[in-house]
Amino acid sequence: MFKKNAVAAGMAAFASVALAAGCAVADGSKDSAVDITAMSADELAEHLIFETDSFRDQEMQEGGSWRDRMTQDELQKACSMEGDPDGETAGRVVAMARAGYERPEGGVELGDWRKGAELANSGFGYRQGHNTDDHGQREQGGNCYNCHVFDPRVSEQGTIGPSLQNYGANRGTSEAVLNYVHEVISNPHQYFPCTEMPRFNSDRHQLLSDEQISHLMAYLLDPESPVNNQ
């Protein structure tokens, strides 16, 4: 319930609040004799992840190890609750997200909507484990179709996020719209704190390149794009 109108809420609160999510692993010991019942649930969850050899030792596509990928940043910690964030958390998350955002030098531009369509409909990339995506073989996609309907003529689109059909037709391509959409794709928590939507270019990491994001924006906003011709 807080999501959409929380943007202005609680902005001031952000710096001062201590995080509840614990990462104090009991004693860092790998000894199986460690007493798991002496830990809080948060401590035990962190212990299980980092001290029990539960993950495959693989190199992540964005660089680093499984340990880096599974280590939470502040935003992930703040959003690890059930349900929507309270006002204070929402404000803190929005502030964090804004602090980490950078507009591209020279402003936001639209790329090629055809390439954007391919990226939006590709779920390739960053998967790890039994079947690891090799970015050297194929470009990573945006996974957008898992959650959004862009073009009902394309089958099998998800509904976790809102339909983006006619997104540009309804909004135009003013500078304000371009900036907003770039901000949402880069780090949607600037507007939707603790949203399910991933951050595609944030201070944590860049999952899509600036160029890829410009293509996705064209798919959404270019008047020629099938998204806007329905």
């Binding site: 798991i36 649930a41 948060d42 035990l44 969850a45 299980l48 992840i49 992540m60 596509q61 964005e62 990928r69 599974m70 280590t71 939470q72 935003l75 992930q76 910690k77 959003c79 690890s80 609750m81 059930e82 960053y126 996974n143 399910e196 991933p198 951050r199 990491h205 999952l207």
Partner: peptide, 17 residues
Amino acid sequence: DAGEKLFFRRGGAMDFN
């Protein structure tokens, strides 16, 4: 209880829980 925390723990490359 730890499993419940893991269920809601946001993480990974795409921030999912």
